[in-house]
């Protein structure tokens, strides 16, 4: 199982930083100058209403889409300057992604879904399956190893998706409404598994959610509204007033 030495505390330097991101789809401005920093090993919640630009932000930070303006830096590299090959490499080795509906490959068993990123990274089938099995065990779904996504509950599928996102030992996991399709108890199991594993391996997590109870698993929260971000710690009456009057 791939785990790294715990990295420095969330007080350490930024792993990902974004400055002045703007992104439009047609006439719709999804991002209007969003900036944020995700520190090493930090769990950061991005909260906000539907349509506020949260998912677009995740897509820009993870290199899935390029912003129209602004800069995203990961580990000192500007994503916008990287060739597609290097971006693909980062997505396979350094980034893990979990979506609201796991997006597992429906034809593959849970075990093969989790083994897939390792196979793509060049690992042989035997060791890849063994490692995948260990991750399923870790998330309490070893018993579902031979089931296909359609044969599992939503909570089980999402835990398999988490295992797939973490199996390569990424430095950062992007989780887009990971419990959005689950009931409360299944959502708790998924969040507990994600947070526990991330803290143990000092993996940073960018958690997109509209649910305050899910955001409360994070170390801190930023709120997105109409394509811009506001830090929770900025929400002090005095600072807000000073900003407006300054």
């Amino acid at each position: 199982m791939s785990t790294r030495e715990p990295r420095p505390s969330p007080e350490s330097s930024a792993l990902i930083s974004a400055h002045g991101l703007r992104k439009s789809y047609g006439r719709t401005e999804a991002l209007r100058g969003a900036s944020l920093e995700l520190r090493e090993g930090e769990i950061l919640a991005v909260a906000g209403a539907s349509g506020s630009g949260k998912s677009t932000l995740l897509h820009c930070l993870s290199g899935i889409v390029r912003p129209d303006e602004g800069v995203v830096t990961y580990g000192g590299e500007q994503l916008g300057l990287l060739p597609e090959g290097r971006l693909g490499e980062l997505r396979r080795s350094d980034f893990g992604v979990v979506f609201q509906f796991g997006q597992l490959i429906p034809e593959l068993t849970a075990l093969d879904n989790v083994a897939m990123p390792l196979l793509l990274a060049g690992m042989r089938r035997g060791p890849a399956q063994q490692q995948a099995g260990e991750w399923l065990e870790r998330f309490g779904v070893r018993g579902q190893a031979e089931l296909r996504p359609g044969e599992m509950s939503g909570g089980q599928s999402q835990r398999v998706a988490l295992a797939r996102a973490l199996v390569t030992g990424p430095r950062v996991v992007f989780a887009d409404e990971p419990t959005g399709a689950l009931d409360t108890l299944a959502g708790e199991q998924v969040m507990t598994a994600l947070v526990h594993t991330a803290r143990e391996s000092a993996t940073a997590v960018l958690l997109i959610t509209h649910d305050a109870q899910v955001a409360a698993y994070a170390d801190r929260e930023v709120v997105m509204s109409d394509g811009v971000l506001r830090s929770g710690s900025d929400d002090v009456v005095g600072q807000e007033a000073a900003r407006r009057e300054g």
Binding site: T192, H196, Q213, V223, D235, V237, E240, A241
Partner: peptide, 29 residues
């Protein structure tokens, strides 16, 4: 010298609520 600002107050109150929710989540997990 600050004037009352209802919107800013709501955002500050949300931040305080979230801080308490993080404490409770840490407690239960």
């Amino acid at each position: 010298g600050r004037k009352p600002d209802a919107a800013a107050h709501l955002r500050a109150q949300r931040a305080a609520h979230m801080e308490r929710m993080r404490e409770l989540t840490a407690l239960k997990t």
